[in-house]
Amino acid sequence: MRELPDDDSWMLDDRRVIGARIRAERKRQRLSQNQLILAARIDRVTIWRVETGRDTSLSTLQRIAHVLDVPLSDLVQ
């Protein structure tokens, strides 16, 4: 079992990687943020938060993965 570091900065780093993967996949599919927002039924602030590594919910990540037609595990690995 691993122990947690003294601070939570590692979580922000992980979320930034996830956000970068989502942004890269969205761009690879030539989707605008607005197209993803409409298809995933999320708001502009939410997609900004996800792509910049801010806190988000699992259900939001599931919506995005579904719309992008990629396994959630590919985005959060």
Rank of each mutant, 00 (worst) to 15 (best):
E3D: 13
E3H: 08
L4V: 07
P5E: 12
D6S: 08
D8A: 15
D8T: 13
S9G: 11
S9Y: 01
S9E: 14
S9K: 08
W10I: 11
L12H: 12
L12K: 12
D13E: 10
D14W: 13
D14S: 15
D14E: 15
R15H: 12
R16F: 07
R16A: 13
V17D: 12
V17Y: 06
I18A: 04
I18P: 04
G19E: 08
G19S: 08
I22T: 04
R23G: 01
R23W: 04
R23M: 04
E25C: 05
E25M: 11
K27C: 10
R28Y: 11
R28P: 01
R28C: 02
R28I: 00
L31C: 00
S32Q: 02
S32C: 01
S32D: 03
Q33H: 03
N34I: 04
Q35G: 02
L36E: 00
L36V: 03
I37C: 02
A39R: 15
A39G: 11
A40N: 05
R41T: 15
R41A: 12
I42M: 05
I42T: 08
I42R: 03
I42H: 02
I42E: 00
I42F: 04
D43N: 14
V45W: 03
V45Y: 04
I47T: 05
I47C: 08
T52N: 15
T52C: 13
G53T: 10
G53C: 13
R54Y: 05
R54C: 05
R54N: 09
D55N: 14
S57V: 09
S59P: 04
S59N: 10
T60W: 07
L61A: 01
Q62D: 10
Q62F: 14
I64E: 03
V67P: 06
L68F: 13
D69N: 15
V70Y: 14
P71G: 04
P71H: 11
L72Q: 14
S73K: 09
L75C: 01
L75P: 04
V76P: 06
Q77T: 10
